[in-house]
Amino acid sequence: MKIVLARIDDRLIHGQVATVWSKVTGCQRIIVCDDDVAKDKIRSTLLKQVAPAGIQSHVVDLEKAVRVYENPKYADDKCLLLFTNPTSVLYMVEHGVPITSVNIGGMSFKEGKHQITGAVSVDDKDIDAFKKLNEKGIELEIRKVDTDSKVMLMDVLK
C-alpha cells in the first residue's frame, strides 16, 4: 500500500476530503481506520456510500488496518488513510506502518477538550499521542485543504 495521505479529521469523509484531497492525492482508496467507527454499522455503511466517483472507501478497525497495509494484494494501491484521533495513528506507527507525515484537518470541540486552532481541539490523550508521534520525527501539520499553508501542530501546542 502506498500511503498518499494520512489525515486526522473526525468528520471523516466530507466535502474537503471528497472533493479536494481525493483529487490532489490521486488516491484509489480511502480507508477509514478507527475501532469505534468500524463497530458502528450505520456510520460505516454510510461512509461507504459517499466515496467520490472512481474511488472505493472502506472502514476497518486498527488491527485490520495494519493487516491491510501488509497485504501484498494492495501493494500498489494509492490509499488515503483517515483517522479520528492521533492515538489511532500512533497505533499504526507502532505496528510498523511507515507514516512520515500527518495532516490534521479537523478535531471537533467536545467537553474536556481545549481548542488550539479554529478547527482543532485536543485533550490530554491526544496531546500525549501527538508528542509521541513528534518524538518519532513525524511531521504534524494542520491544514484544511492543500492550498492552505501548513501550521505545525507542535508550535500551537506549546
Binding site: K48, Q56, V68
Partner: peptide, 15 residues
C-alpha cells in the same frame, strides 16, 4: 439519491 434500499453489500473480503 440515497435510499435505504440502495445500500450495497461490501464485496471485498479482505478490505
Amino acid at each position: 439519491t440515497f435510499h435505504a434500499s440502495s445500500v450495497a453489500a461490501d464485496d471485498e473480503e479482505d478490505l
